[in-house]
Design a protein around this nucleic acid. Structure first.
Length: 554
RNA sequence: GCCCUCGUAGCUCAGUGGAUAGAGCAUCCCCCUCCUAAGGGGAGGGUCACACGUUCGAUUCGUGUCGAGGGCACCA
């Protein structure tokens, strides 16, 4: 991939040079001052601004404006800038880019095409992103949908930065909730068979349990009462896993590995983990249970590992599971989960530290998504698997579409609570922001198709005719894309991509309304088409990161 | 009580250690004989919860208060 030096970095390098020429002493310090280039909110303040003069005023014992003057005096000649930067306000240096610098991005976009914007910070290192990890005790609901969209987009983002990403789904297919599931199905079976049976107190009451019971009775005619609880459990888990797989497929989310909690028991990794912790001296017996001294590692209380009835708490297989992540060579691991599970973070980190196997302290990284409040008909819908009140992911996809659902979940910062108004999402699906972005892509396709020329010729068009404000805005937005992807990946913040995309789309739409592309002047026409072709590529790349389609027609 | 996240326009939400705080929806006013109006242009609407501190500069960082949600089991 050709190295595209974005304008901001280029400007920063230029001013860094000037600063050290003007104040050589700064260069020799232990921590040399680093120039920061920012984008002013106000267009009147130029394309970029440098505030170093203000920051250095105290240190250098000079007035900010004088420092700014000295920096400008030392500024090397460059074709990057349009005119001489201005000193404004208390001492900001406001900078405008030359047309040459602005149009440079176009050839970089064409050269890299689908890879434009990608970086190589990961340099092929392995990272695991674990997400969704829903218990196979019911269909996926809106909360899982948010997790699926965020986790998948994080995986895609990391891939753009050169990481070798593995997506993993951890199935809690062992433990009390699974037995609860089996008992719930069994109770429905007995009801259907006309046998008097009490429903488990904390059983799952959703309609899907009834369906599973009906299917079980059809398949195992000899066990209509569900007496073979083990068979019932296996059947129910398999059925629900299958349903969840279909949901995820409809959402275009794929996993590389499905890791079964039950395998940690059958492979002996749970026993191994416990034995290891006991051997390391981090455990003690109390009240007939085995405890981990997790408080030694920052947890707020010690945790029971083996209950007095001899079974393990979920905490133990969780540690064993994370140990396998490390041992499988994932020196970096990210876990995306709902904020209602955040309590498990401290004890998981503590548990891994207690293993004394060189796992870094912050391993794994966590991305939490806050809960979704679902509104329907102006009333909050309480989501409870056990009570059976539900808004499934499948419902959402069927009602508002995959693209809109994914975009909606990703466009908001994951750690803010959000209200999902189902009626709004359904009735106003035309107003969903995703269409705004997709429309920009489709509009460009439409213009190019109407033009009917050879796309290839646009890649070498003379761009000197691109001089309008709209063109300048669009060019600079395109040039921002690599940095945007880099930042979004570093911050594990997929929503930044959506924000960028809607801003880019807005610039395209404004341009479209202000200027005609298919003009008579051939030079101008080709230049404009070249610009929107590059814009189409960036829109497509950005939408791909969010997992949303880039339609050619709408 | 302790811990985590959040508190920005009527609503849903972005954003930032800097120079006039943004978008969408909602309200109001314009723009298709012209490349898709699923679009564009404009108006109104804010003590960025509150207080104190750090800073040349705080809506942004820190502390506290108040408010919302979540977590604090030998449940998962």
């Amino acid at each position: 991939m050709p190295s595209f030096i974005d304008n901001k970095s280029a400007v920063a390098a230029l001013f860094q040079k000037a600063l050290f020429l003007a104040y050589p002493a700064l260069k020799d310090e232990a921590a040399p001052f680093v120039i920061e280039v920012e984008k002013p909110k106000n267009q009147d303040h130029g394309h970029f601004a440098v505030n170093s003069a203000l920051q250095l005023a105290k240190k250098l014992g000079a007035k900010p404006r004088d420092i700014a003057l000295a920096i400008l005096a030392a500024l090397p000649a460059s074709d990057l800038l349009a005119g001489t930067p201005e000193i404004a306000g208390p001492g900001f240096i406001n900078i405008r880019l030359s047309a040459i610098a602005e149009t440079r991005v176009i050839s970089a976009v064409f050269a890299a095409a689908d890879n434009f914007g990608n970086g190589n910070e990961g340099s092929g290192r392995k990272v695991m992103v674990e997400f969704v990890s829903a218990n196979p005790t019911g269909p996926l609901h809106v909360g899982h949908g948010r997790g699926a969209a965020i986790g998948d987009t994080i995986a895609r983002l990391l891939k753009t930065q050169g990481w070798e990403v593995s997506r993993e789904f951890y199935y809690n297919d062992a433990g009390a909730q699974i037995i609860n599931l089996a008992l719930s199905v069994q109770a429905r079976l007995r009801e259907q068979a006309g046998v008097d049976a009490a429903f488990p107190e904390n059983g799952y009451r959703g309609d899907y349990i009834v369906e599973i019971a009906e299917r079980y009775a059809l398949k195992f005619a000899q066990d209509r009462n569900g007496d073979d609880l083990d068979a019932v459990q296996k059947f129910a888990v398999a059925a629900l896993r299958h349903e969840q797989d279909l949901d995820l497929k409809a959402f275009d989310v794929q996993f590389d590995v499905y890791y079964l909690e039950s395998s940690l028991y059958t492979d002996g990794l749970v026993e191994k983990t416990v034995a290891h912790l006991v051997r390391m001296g981090h455990t003690y017996e109390k009240d007939g249970a085995l405890w981990l001294k997790s408080t030694d590692y920052g947890d707020d209380k010690d945790r029971v590992m083996r209950k007095s009835d001899g079974t393990y708490t979920y905490f133990v297989p969780d540690i064993a599971y994370h140990v396998t992540k490390w041992e499988r060579g994932f020196t970096r691991a990210i876990t995306e989960l709902g904020a209602d599970h955040h309590g498990s973070l401290a004890r998981m980190h503590a548990g891994l530290q207690a293993m004394d196997m060189g796992v870094p302290k912050g391993y794994p990284d966590y991305v939490l998504h806050q809960m979704i409040t679902v509104m329907r008909g102006g009333v909050e819908v309480k989501i409870s698997k056990r009570a059976g009140s539900y808004v499934t992911l499948r419902d959402l996809i069927d009602e508002v579409g995959r693209d809109a659902t994914r975009y909606f979940f990703v466009m908001r910062k994951s750690d803010s609570q959000l209200t999902f108004d189902i009626d709004l999402a359904k009735s106003r699906s035309e107003d969903n922001p995703v269409y705004y972005v997709q429309y920009a892509h489709a509009r460009i396709c439409s213009v190019l198709s109407l033009w009917g020329g050879d796309i290839g010729t646009l890649k070498s068009a003379d761009l000197s005719a691109l001089t309008s404000k709209y063109e300048s805005d669009l060019l600079r937005a395109l040039a921002d894309f690599p940095e945007l992807l880099h930042d979004a990946a570093r911050e594990l913040s997929p929503h930044l991509v959506c924000i960028y995309l809607s801003e880019l789309a807005a610039k395209l739409h404004s341009y479209y309304n202000a200027e005609k592309f298919l003009v008579d002047d051939e030079n101008l026409r080709l230049a404009r088409l070249s610009l929107i072709l590059a814009t189409r590529q960036v829109l497509k790349n950005g939408l791909a990161v969010v997992g949303v389609s880039a339609p050619e027609k709408m």
